[in-house]
Amino acid sequence: MRTVDGIDWNEVVEDLGPALLRYFLAAGFARASASDGVQETLLRLVRLAKEGEYDPNRGSPRMLAFGIARLVKHEFYRKVGEHDLYGDAKEFADRADSVSAFAPGESAASSDALFAERQSAARLREVIGMLEYPVREIFFLLIDEELKLEEIAGILSIPVGTVKSHVHRGKEKIKLGLKEKV
């Protein structure tokens, strides 16, 4: 693949693609929409690079990519309404159970352990979906193991200390939420 300003886009796809996909899935997107969200994010990254506004020295490409992904997510929410995703807990749970984490054609019940793990993923998605902003957003971003707390603070334009305290309180709420679900 040709490069723009020496960026190897194959590497970007390998490195950021899975993380962005998890981000969109966690945010309540169905699998196909999440995949489209990743594509749109990557395309905007390419456009920024073409316009010379993608400077890896100004911040990590990861941080920039997640900043764009947030924008793409908000545009999607504006289209379909965030309320439709999080407003009805039961509907969200059903949606989470039935779609997101599984690739098309995968069988969710291929093994009991796998099925149980995916059920817990669906429950976790539901609980995180119930958190208020910006705690919910912080947890969506935390799913990517390589995004540092400083970068998350940068993406959300809030102090690192605030991120840390939200993480601490959010953990407790998630644990409580999961217990109630069980």
Partner: peptide
């Protein structure tokens, strides 16, 4: 807590679709 999310991986078809879109954008 977040481990449940991390086993999600894009399929090779999805990656191929993203690469094709990027290649077209680069062109």
């Amino acid at each position: 807590l977040l481990r449940a999310y991390r086993d999600v991986q894009p399929t090779s078809d999805e990656k191929e679709k993203w690469r094709a879109a990027i290649a077209q954008e680069v062109r």
